Simulated assay, not measured.
Amino acid sequence: MTGLSGLLAGRRFLWGRSVLSLMLREMATSYGRSPGGYLWAVAEPVAALTLLTVVFSFLMRSPPLGNNFPLFYATGYLPFMYYTALTAKIGQAIRFSRPLLAYPAVSFFDAILSRFLLNTLTNLVVFVIVMVGIIAFYDLNVSLDLPAILEAFSMAAALAMGVGTLNCYLFSVAPVWERVWAILNRPMFLLSGIFFLMETVPEPFRTLLSYNPLTHVIAKMRQGFFATYDARLVDPLYAYSVSLVCLFFGMLLLNRHHRMLLNEGA
């Protein structure tokens, strides 16, 4: 038993070390070589939110919820960008780590998990910095619902993991799908509830929009920042179900065909 425990502990250590090494490699390539590095990760959403605030403040007297434009749009834009960025990163995991996947100690799941962990931590830090900055700059009296905020992030993370894992296979076997996916995702920026509340959309469009799991993520996030907002249309079970279905088929396909994908890219 002692020998078996030591063997399992050694394997866990090697697995953890490979994941950490992949995370450090991506930190160096994604942020260490770009001008500004991690500073740009904060500056980009700030610039986007500033533009949205300026444009829509001219069109409307107040946002659809609350009275602060940056807070309203940040609660929609930041979770949406977290999902889209993480989905793209996970989708490119095999291509990015292909040279290292030739080693027996590194698996395709290590590549996916390392990208998931690093980009989730990065986006969480960016989210906290931006939201705290908005609340402090405008001196807002916000009553935070932390369980709702964490659940919104959990839903977004699950969706990104599931869709990203399925795309990791599809991007590798059919590179043209990456371009098609990017085109299909463009309307999602307008259809995910960043600019409006689901409750204000008339039927049957409200039901159609509810099939987009990101609308549930954004509505749940807004519930966490606006105490008067009742996100009664949110269905976490639906979002998690979509995530699990995509994750199941993504892992199934990668487990069966990852060696073929590696050999084709060699």
Score class of each variant (00 low, 15 high):
L51H: 00
Y77F: 15
T84E: 15
F58R: 06
R98I: 13
T87A: 09
P63L: 06
P63R: 06
A85Y: 11
T50W: 11
S97H: 12
F72P: 03
Q92P: 01
F72I: 05
A88S: 14
A74E: 00
L51W: 04
T84G: 10
A85W: 10
K89M: 14
A74R: 00
R98K: 07
N68R: 10
F58Q: 09
F80P: 00
I90F: 08
T84I: 14
Q92E: 15
L59D: 03
N68S: 12
S97K: 00
F96S: 14
L78W: 01
G76H: 11
L65I: 01
S57I: 03
A85L: 12
N68W: 01
L51E: 00
L65H: 03
L59Q: 05
F80C: 04
L59T: 05
L65K: 07
T84W: 07
N67D: 11
F56C: 11
T53S: 15
T50V: 15
F96W: 08
L51M: 12
G76T: 11
F58N: 03
A74C: 02
L52T: 06
G66E: 10
L52C: 08
G66M: 07
G91A: 07
P79K: 06
F96R: 12
Y83I: 15
K89W: 02
L51F: 12
Y77I: 09
T75V: 01
R61H: 05
Y83L: 15
Y82S: 14
Y82H: 13
P70Q: 09
G76D: 13
T84Y: 10
S62G: 04
T87P: 02
K89R: 14
L86S: 12
T53Y: 02
R61F: 01
G76M: 11
L78T: 01
P64M: 08
Y82Q: 13
I94D: 02
P99V: 10
F96M: 13
K89L: 13
T84K: 11
A88M: 10
Q92G: 11
N68P: 02
L52S: 07
S57P: 07
M60F: 12
